[in-house]
Design a protein around this nucleic acid. Structure first.
Length: 257
DNA sequence: ATGACCGTCTCAGACGGA
């Protein structure tokens, strides 16, 4: 099985790169975030042309998530939204069953700044997420929760911890909140295979950060322990940060037997 | 140097992103 998560920062703007990626890597499942599309404008036809079906949760100009799967596997039992999330209209959580696998694509709120209403909403979102992840784990079966967590789990996941003081994405409450989701019974796939390695998934568009190596690891694929034991490769496709009109995030690819 | 990017919506500039 090959499952990918990718914050594309507008599916319309990124469609050529997404189709290029599907052809090159042939994933079974692709979790998308920041699709930024109206429900009516979601590119189902273009994806079908490539052999994929999609369960999208779309809310117009901001956010938006989707689970894209090989047509043969399908997307069943689709659930849009997360019980208890602070602002349900934002389209940050979608679930679908792909083959035998329950898949979640999630786009956690940014939080903007510490001690703000947005920051509190981010922490609330994580609480709701931990509760739902716990329920899905308890339901049994294999589970993947993949997406843009908007938190770097540890200091090794940012280019310079000293540059991340009194800002979001690295604060102790955010890291604890993310840990609450993992502690519901999931494994950070990248870290499972790469315990020490620095592996960024996002680089700011500004100030040449990509070329200077100044990034963060904020996109995660969290898997059931039984999947964690079968992982064969977890890779960051950093070449997708190059070339024509890249997203500021790159795809994270997980393979298991 | 109170900067530097990108996409959206709307049509020059605000807003969100992280």
């Amino acid at each position: 099985m090959r499952l990918v998560t990718w914050n594309v920062n507008s599916l319309r703007a990124r469609l050529p790169r997404v189709l290029e990626f599907l052809a090159e890597h042939e994933p079974d499942v692709l979790c998308l975030q920041e699709t930024k599309t109206d429900p009516d404008a979601f590119p189902h036809a273009e994806l079908a042309e490539a052999g994929y079906v999609a369960a999208d949760h779309s809310a117009g100009r901001w956010a938006g998530v989707a689970v894209v799967a090989r047509e043969q596997l399908g997307v069943a039992a689709v659930r849009r939204g997360l019980a208890g999330e602070p602002i349900a209209e934002e389209a940050r959580w979608v679930e679908a069953t792909v083959g035998e696998l329950r898949v979640v694509s999630v786009y956690v709120p940014n939080g903007r700044e510490l001690a703000s209403e947005w920051y509190e909403q981010k922490l609330s979102f994580f609480d709701a997420m931990a509760a739902r992840a716990g329920a899905l784990v308890a339901a049994g079966g294999e589970l993947v929760v993949a997406g843009d967590m908007n938190v770097a789990p540890a200091d090794v996941d940012v280019y310079d911890p000293a540059a991340f003081v009194q800002v979001t994405h690295t604060s102790a409450p955010e890291r604890a909140a993310l840990k609450g989701v993992v502690d519901a019974g999931l494994v950070d796939a990248y870290r499972a295979l790469h315990p020490e390695e620095v592996g960024f998934t996002w680089w700011d568009y500004r100030q040449g950060h990509f070329h200077r190596g100044l990034g963060m690891r904020i996109d995660l694929t969290l898997v059931s322990p039984s999947i964690g034991e079968r992982l064969t490769r977890v890779g960051i496709e950093r070449d997708y940060r190059k070339g024509s009109r890249p997203s500021d995030h790159v795809p994270l690819v997980a393979d298991w037997a």
